[in-house]
Structures are given as C-alpha cells and as structure tokens.
Design a protein around this nucleic acid. Structure first.
Lengths: 237, 237
DNA sequence: CATACAATAGGCCATATGTCCTATCTTGCG
DNA sequence: CGCAAGATAGGACATATGGCCTATTGTATG
C-alpha cells in the first residue's frame, strides 16, 4: 500500500484531474469480503481502484446475483452512475486487501468544464467495459455451467490453486446464474477428471492449464486496457 | 424525414457540439434490413440516430449472433469505440426507414478540448447502456427462450402485430441465442395459446398484453433516457 | 464433549434445450 | 405448370439444468 500521492503519481492522475479534483481525492481500503460499493446506495463518489482484486455483480429483485467481472488496478468504479439519479447499479466486493481513491461527484460536476480529460478517459473506459459486457454476455448465454465455473476459478484462484475471497459453493452458483445442484455436479465432474480437488469443503485447482481450456475465456481478458497515462499519450496530442 | 438542421434543432445538438463539429456533421439513411454499422469496420464516425428503429447485435467467431438491444431515436451508435483501435464491436441494422447524422472521429479528436459537453453526454449515455446491459444479461441468462422470444416480439412488431424487418425464424433463433428447433417449439406453444398466429410462415402477434406478461421486460425499457437537451438542462448549470 | 446449524454430497425425476432427421410447404423461375 | 432451393413443422432422442429430498460432514457454541 502506498500513499495517495504515490498512487496519483503511479497512475498519472495529476495529468487526468484538475488541481481542485486532486485536492478532493479521498482514500480508503477494504478487506476480503467487504463491499467497496453497495448497489442501490446513492452515488456520492467515483472510485479509482488502485490496489487489490475485486469482483463486480448485480443483484436482482429476488435476491439472485450475477457476476459481471473481476477487476484489478488500475480501474474505475461507479463512473457509469455519474449522471444517474438511481444509485449504484452494481456491487463491488473486495476479494483481497484493496485500496481506492474516491472522487466526489459533486466536485466533478462543479469543475466539469476544466476536466475534459477525465470525461474522455471515462468514455474510453466505459466503451471498453461495454465491449467486455457483450463478450461476457455471449459466453454466459451459450456456454455450459462447466465453462463458466472454469472461468470463475481461473480468475479467482491464487497461484497455489485456492479460491480467493470467502465464497462457498452456494454463493458461486448464485454468481454464475446456476443452481447449487448443477454446480455440485459440475464440481464433481472436474474433480473426477483431476482438474481440482476438494479438501474439507474447500475447492483447490490442481490443473490450471486444463481449466483454462475449459473456460470460455470469460473474465480477465488481459492487457486490453490502458492506464490513464498511456491513454493520454495516445489520445492527447 | 427532416433536414440536418431540423434534427440539430430538434435534439439541441447545437448545444452539445462546438461549431466545428456541427459543420462536420454528415447525414445518411438506411432502409429495413440494411446495416447502419458493420461490426469490425474501422471506426470513422460516431452516429446520432434520429429516425427509425434499429437492432444491435454482436457476432461471434463461429458466425452466431446475439441480440443486444433495440434502439429508437434519440440515440448514439459507435461511441463505445471512439477510443478503440479495434473497429466497431457491434452491428447495427435498420428495421425500418432510418436516418443518422454522422460525426467523424477525427473531427472529435481535433476539437476534444472544446467539446467537453459531448464527452459528458457520452459518459451519461454509456453509463446508462452499461446498466441496461447488466439487466439484459441477467434476464437472458435466467429466463427461458419463451420469455426472450416474447421480449423480442414485443419490441419488434408493429401495431397490427407484424414483425418489423425481414427476419425468419432461423434469424430470430440466432439472435436469441437459441436453436431453431427450440424456437419452433416455443412458437407452436404460443400459437396453441392464441397469443400469436402463423400465416404463410409469417408470425403475427394477436394478444399483446399476454405477450408482455411473458416477456422478461428485456428490451426497450421506456422513458429512462434523456435527450441531449434534457441532459444539459439537468447537468449544466 | 454434545448439540445445532450450515454446508456438502448425491439420488431421483421433470423440464428446457440441442442435435439429427424427415416430411411438407412456399416461392421463384424456366 | 412443374421443379428446385429454401423455409417450416415436427418426431426421436440425448444432454444440461433445476427442484426436491435425504444423508453426511464440518463447525460453532454452550
């Protein structure tokens, strides 16, 4: 973990934000399992995600959830709701020790005229997120639960194969839009094939390469994303 | 159909765009079944959709498609790819006589510093589209083909119940992420219940209220969208 | 340690959907 | 008119998935 100034430098936020906005930056951390954003809460800030691993999901009226994506730094949360009076659409949950810089929406609105670069970056980032959603949607709809579980495990396990965060099978079924029953079947199938093992109720991935081949390449498509610095270099003459 | 100036006035584009960008506006129309945007084409313009009905879909490597949304004026197409070097992500197809104003990306980049309002509006619109995608995704994943077909028909039929555009059952199955076989079964079910009829291969909706109840409320959620004018009024002091 | 509760494991059956195949129907064209 | 290509209708069967239920295991708590 670094200081606010350290993160500002690391991600060139001083080239993205006007001085007033730099002054308005707050900062805070969350531990595994804690919420960074709760869907439905009023939108007071947008958040720059600078440290950790987070998952993003929606919650339907009946309480069912659906995993949207995993995010790693650098990224932005809550920007989609910048002009929405409805509150946050998605919940964001830390899966490891995480750290954010927050920027009050009120400050953004007040200084909008002087922060064209921020809006350009947000346009870039939201455009990319839209494209990601389309890919994820196609895959979610057409691939079996096995592929979706493989994607989930591929993105959400550490090097030793243990799942990050504290989700049990029920939670994972929920996130994947599957039933507990079906997920249990699929887990057994993967276990029988030696791709993972279950020790005291915990899932551990044994054969990461094979898991990747099963995964529909859903989450965490790597390297497609520009930091603010690279974005500015490529788009501001 | 109106003149470019007429549309500019109608949607207050002169308050959204700098004079250089207003001058750079082009215009063109498309008939039913014609493409407004072809996925993969290089991104030369963003498009303001001012007249007609259009559907937006993605195409996967294997040729399968997936319907993303139906759009009516006012809306923007191609803005998600404004900063993307990858070409358009989605295809947009006119379903009725349609008309667009196009704005060259090169002109936007050149005048970016003077067009903060455009970027703000695009942030607003993309944020809303992201939220829509999340809702559509949950519904697509958890609702049966029957609901998705109901949504499709609800959004894509005229007052007399005839389907707009020239899609046959095969195309619709493709768009809904279903098989032809399953879609045919579902169509028969709806026909047996008197919700629609089939005359010489054409589908016609008979009982729109019942169809709406079946639909997962997927496409065309109404009234949630601000024109540029209303957006500016609410967000620019 | 004993109990209670939550999570896991898996049987059983119904439904939704996909794949393959064949017959019928439409439509454009010679 | 009569044929050929494409679209539609539907049977037969396999797979994916969901819902319900029961037994077992793990864990927290008194």
């Amino acid at each position: 973990m670094d200081s606010v100034e350290g993160y500002v430098r690391r991600y060139a936020l001083d080239r993205l934000l006007s001085p007033e906005l730099l002054d308005a930056l707050g900062s805070w951390g969350r531990g595994p399992g804690e919420l960074i954003i709760r869907a439905g809460d009023p939108v007071r800030d947008i958040h720059f995600f600078v440290e950790g691993l987070a998952k993003v999901y929606s919650t339907m009226e009946n309480g069912q959830r659906l995993l949207a994506a995993f995010y790693r730094p650098f990224d932005v949360f809550g920007e989609a709701e910048l002009f929405s009076p409805q509150g946050y659409t998605l919940s964001v949950e830390a899966m490891s020790e995480s750290f954010c810089l927050s920027l009050p929406v009120a400050a953004i609105r007040k200084t909008a005229e002087r922060n064209g670069r921020l809006f350009m970056y947000l346009c870039y980032r939201m455009g990319a997120k839209l494209a990601e959603r389309v890919v994820a949607e196609s895959i979610n709809l057409r691939y079996p639960v096995e592929s979706r579980l493989a994607s989930y495990l591929f993105a959400a396990t550490d090097a030793a194969g243990w799942i990050l965060g504290r989700d049990d099978l029920g939670e994972i079924a929920d996130f994947l839009g599957s039933s507990y029953r079906q997920l249990a079947r699929v887990v057994r199938g993967l276990r029988d094939e030696g791709i993972l093992e279950r020790t005291r109720g915990r899932i551990r991935v044994l054969d990461r390469p094979r898991l990747e081949r099963l995964a529909g390449d859903l989450y965490l498509r790597p390297g497609m994303q520009l930091s603010p610095q690279r974005f500015l270099e490529m788009n501001i003459p």
